[in-house]
Amino acid sequence: MSAHLFFLLVALLFSIGLVGVISRRNLFVVYMSVELMLSAITLLFATLSQTLNSANASVMSLLTIAIIAAEAALFLAMIIHLYRINRTLDSEQCTSLKQEAL
């Protein structure tokens, strides 16, 4: 068994996460898609740790998992906050970056 399959899986998972981020409006799905992209990266590091036979890649993987956790905390807090304000989970409702008409 070679690492090509793992690489393919990594690419697919990352892409699915990307598709989720840009095509869905539900804030929860967007959040989980971002998490999925990060998880794909941890898988890549784990695979590299095997192919390079080094523990360093595993450590990076571990740190990435920690980042996933940190991000989860912030993202969920933000979702709750936005829901309290807007009573909706629609990301399209947030348009304060919009340019006012001239």
């Binding site: 690489f7 393919l8 990594v10």
Partner: peptide, 15 residues
């Protein structure tokens, strides 16, 4: 996706 995959394949692939 294709680009990522092809580029990853340039890495050493023996487990």
């Amino acid at each position: 996706t294709v680009l990522i995959y092809t580029q990853l394949n340039t890495l050493p692939a023996t487990l």
